[in-house]
Write a protein that binds this DNA or RNA. Structure first.
Lengths: 198, 198
DNA sequence: ACCGAGTATAGAACATCGTTCTATACTAAT
DNA sequence: ATTAGTATAGAACGATGTTCTATACTCGGT
């Protein structure tokens, strides 16, 4: 027996490659993220990555698009109460990042050598930012963020979350208790940015 | 002529390699950061990177250490008025990042495959964080940041700056005017975090 | 049940990467 | 002027992403 490994059904190849890619990225980081290692993990031929994705960059793009789509969905289901939107959105953002570390790494943390997201992938990312913008506009209907235009306020919200979370993922976050310090941080930013009357 | 290229004097090799490495990183990003390309730019043999640094990772470590040293120095010369420390430190931080993009990339933006800073390099980075901590403690003498312990407040300050700047460097900062929006952002965080009495 | 189109696979091949090694030729100090 | 030190060129190794080819499996239509 074993003259040749079992052949994987076509429909299973893409999800198994995605799963393997995310696992490898989570376990070994970008340095372990190689075509041969991913294929080995997925029990699939290296060539499958070229037949089902556009090579390594295509796989990264698939992770990018899935990541921004998931983040957008997570942000959209936050509180319907405009008064809580800043707090809830920040919480949802951090939860997404810590729950989908591999996705977040591709989206924001690591510039993979050779990988440039396609124009379509960029529009998906833009749509996620526009979701943030819409959340801000909704909050502005009850007087929050009234000092800034929506784009700038959305950028501040994003910066707040990404700053804390990315340092956390790089393990250069020395906060005594990361969960609590993040809460204190976004409450503080909320006081100063969202409810201010400078 | 030209049976062999001019030989570069020993003392010039290290600075020229450093300069070439930073240039290449700034121009071509991590994907262009290869031994052969850096040596070509410095008009030096590839082997020089092994004789004068510990290979590619050694060169990255040199950039890391220089970067954290420069950042620490820039943060230490900020305002002696404790009331302005938050504002001045944030300004100095962003200025450093935008002026030393290649350094900042190695320090915070890109996990280079295979590169792990040595224990000594980590202590240099820690010293920079402790500088931030000292700045916070100084501000606390006049009642600023009084709600938090110094480590947590320093982490908030760092997160604020890194969040805005890193998205800026990744070119996913859509603020109408980055300079002004950053100022508004840190003023807002200052109101909410530094001067709060929650 | 069979047969043929589609496709998953193995493996060789290529350029480039980081790295190591060797032999050569230059430089600077004695 | 001689010698020790070292910058250089170049070959070599394994690993990488990628392309190509030939093989062998699978599944849908008859």
């Amino acid at each position: 027996m074993a003259t040749r490994a079992q052949r994987t059904p076509s429909q299973l190849i893409e999800p198994e490659l995605m799963a393997a890619a995310l696992e490898i990225l989570g376990e070994s980081g970008p340095e372990g993220f190689t075509i041969r290692a991913i294929a080995r993990r997925a029990k699939v031929a290296p060539m499958a990555i070229y037949n089902h994705f556009a090579g390594k960059d295509g796989l990264l793009e698939a992770i990018w698009i899935e990541g921004f789509t998931l983040l957008r969905r997570d942000l959209e289901v936050t509180s319907i109460n405009p008064n809580n939107k800043f707090f809830d959105t920040a919480q949802a953002y951090r939860k997404f990042a810590l729950t989908h570390r591999s996705h977040y790494t591709v989206m924001f943390m690591h510039r993979f050598i050779g990988f440039t997201p396609s124009p379509y992938a960029v529009t998906v990312a833009l749509a996620t930012f526009q979701t943030l913008e819409r959340l801000v506009k909704s909050a502005q209907t009850v007087g929050i963020f009234s000092d800034y235009n929506a784009v700038d306020a959305a950028q501040m919200l994003w910066s707040t979350c990404h700053g804390f979370v990315s340092l956390e993922m790089l393990d250069i976050n020395f906060a005594t208790n990361r969960d609590e310090t993040f809460l204190e941080f976004i409450r503080g930013v909320e006081r100063g940015v969202a409810y201010s009357n400078k």
